[in-house]
Design a protein around this nucleic acid. Structure first.
Length: 452
RNA sequence: UCCUCGGUAGCUCAGUCGGUAGAGCAGGUGGCUGUUAACCACCCUGUCGGCGGUUCGAGUCCGUCCCGGGGAGCCA
């Protein structure tokens, strides 16, 4: 019976004959037999194979098995007399499927730096840490859908090629065919780009179906070279009709807590590895996120707190100026030491679609900041009042004709509505403790960087 | 894009005052052992990131470019 190692280690069917497939992590020889540790990607743990010298291919194949080789093993599962594992597989046959030349195979049975592994984008999922990231990411992705589906949200596949920019979301990649010969000769009849956000289109569906969400790739042509930016990343964007900023904030916090809890319960082995080797204290931090209420303050309160802190900052703090990274980090990491939502920013700092508050100066915006990463969620209540929206668009220099469809949503049956964007990779960073966002996506894209 | 710190063996790194390069791991060979980052012995391994300059002599000093880390801006 062909089984996966995670099943085998969970059920421990001692006395049964099973077949496993996987890649050799390390081999140790004794006089009469060899220990072969195999990993099949189903879990972090390896399975220890006992390959006896009596096997036909022992001398010319098994004893030469190198790290990275793929093998198929059939044998009897039995309790292990040694320390370090409960069960082991006594091989009755061991077939070498794909050898890996130890002279040239770049992955060794030791720890490599994450920077080095990044140069081996195609091989790094075979390592403990990057394999664990892939499993955690997959669980989180699934949990995102479960979270929304359990709450009656409808998933919308908003367009990847778009002709609507979303102000404040960054620069767009242009989409052209290569056949265009003159300016104005556009495949779509007008200039098009890769989406920087599905928000505007999601709003159209929220104002029809109530609660919707998108979860798809997003593209930003910004020349950002940081540990938390990618040119191609995945974003989750819920949009809710008849929902104000408070409800919006509540959903964001509930969602973050739900997803962290999902990782804690279904990826405990992988998280243990991160806790040990990637970020000491990760588990404690994540458990805190699940247990405690997040802090919420307004932008004005934040400015006040920063001014009264007595702390010397590089950048000035004054009402009307944007909060700098150092300010956000101070509040989030030192003052509160927990996820922090900052709301109601000055209108001048935020894009046109955010709803103007009654004070006439601020908008119903929110940024959810987490320690170590900074902004993980950015959202707002949307401006649902036609005149106010049109006014802010004009002030921003936007051609109203280009966005007449968006204004229509306010012209007919407009309703208060809210939504946010959650950067999926930043979530995976937060959950795994990975310091660089390029470690949490399979094939990262960044300025000057797209190797495969 | 800006600031800053780096780039030396397959990997992780050391290299003093400028005098021609080393360790651990990996790899190879042999030995030993229910081992588990196995262990012991021996062997192999270099465009010192590229180009140019200073110097009798450059891994080391200067210029420049490329690449990487950290920070900043932009944001998710």
């Amino acid at each position: 019976m062909k089984v996966r190692i995670n099943q085998l280690l969970a059920n421990k069917p001692v006395g049964e004959t099973v077949t496993i497939n996987g890649w050799v992590r390390t081999r140790r020889d004794t006089g009469a037999f060899s220990f072969v540790e195999v990993n099949d990607g189903s879990c972090l743990a390896n399975l220890q194979i006992i390959a006896d010298a009596a096997l036909a291919n022992y001398e010319h194949e098994i004893r030469l098995l190198a790290t990275g080789s793929s093998i198929q093993v059939t044998g009897l599962l039995r309790e292990s007399p040694g320390k370090g594992q409960d069960v082991e597989l006594q091989a009755s046959s061991l077939a070498l499927l794909g050898p890996a030349d130890p002279e040239s195979y770049p992955l060794q049975k030791k720890r490599h730096s994450l920077e080095f592994l990044r140069e081996l984008t195609h091989l790094r999922p075979r390592t403990n840490a990057l394999g664990a990231v892939a499993r955690v990411r997959s669980r989180l992705s699934f949990a995102v859908h479960r979270f929304f589906q359990e709450r009656g949200f409808v998933q919308i596949h908003t367009p990847i090629i778009t002709t609507s920019d979303c102000e404040g979301a960054g620069e767009m990649f242009q989409v052209i065919t290569g056949r265009e010969t003159s300016v104005g000769d556009h495949f779509f009849g007008r200039p098009a780009g890769l989406t920087v956000s599905g928000q505007l289109q999601a709003e159209a569906f929220a104002l029809a179906l109530g609660n919707v969400y998108t979860f798809g790739p997003t593209f930003r042509a910004e020349n950002s070279n940081t540990s938390r930016h990618l040119a191609e990343f995945w974003m989750i964007e819920p949009e809710m009709a008849f929902c104000d900023l408070a409800g919006n904030r509540q959903l964001a916090e509930e969602m973050l807590r739900y997803l962290v809890n999902e990782a804690l319960t279904s990826c405990s082995d992988d998280l243990l590895l991160f806790d040990q080797f990637i970020e000491k204290g990760l588990l404690k931090r994540l458990q805190g996120v699940v247990a405690q209420e997040f802090v919420q303050i307004s932008y004005s309160e934040a400015v006040e707190r920063l001014q009264k802190s007595g702390r010397q900052f590089t950048y000035p703090v004054s009402w009307g100026l944007d909060l700098q990274s150092e300010h956000e980090r101070y509040l989030c990491e030192e003052v509160f030491a927990c996820p922090l939502t900052v709301t109601d920013y000055p209108a001048s700092l935020k894009p046109f679609y955010m709803r103007l508050n009654d004070d006439g100066k601020t908008v119903a915006a929110m940024d959810l900041l987490v320690p170590g990463i900074g902004e993980i969620v950015g959202g707002s209540q949307r401006e649902e009042r036609y005149d106010l929206l049109a006014g802010r668009m004009s002030a921003a220099g936007i051609d109203l004709d280009d966005y007449s469809w968006y204004l229509d949503l306010r012209r007919y049956g407009s309703a208060p509505h809210s939504g946010f964007g959650l950067g999926f990779e930043r979530l995976v960073q937060f959950v795994t403790g990975m310091g660089n966002i390029r470690e949490v996506i399979a094939f990262p894209r960044a300025p000057g960087y797209a190797p495969c």
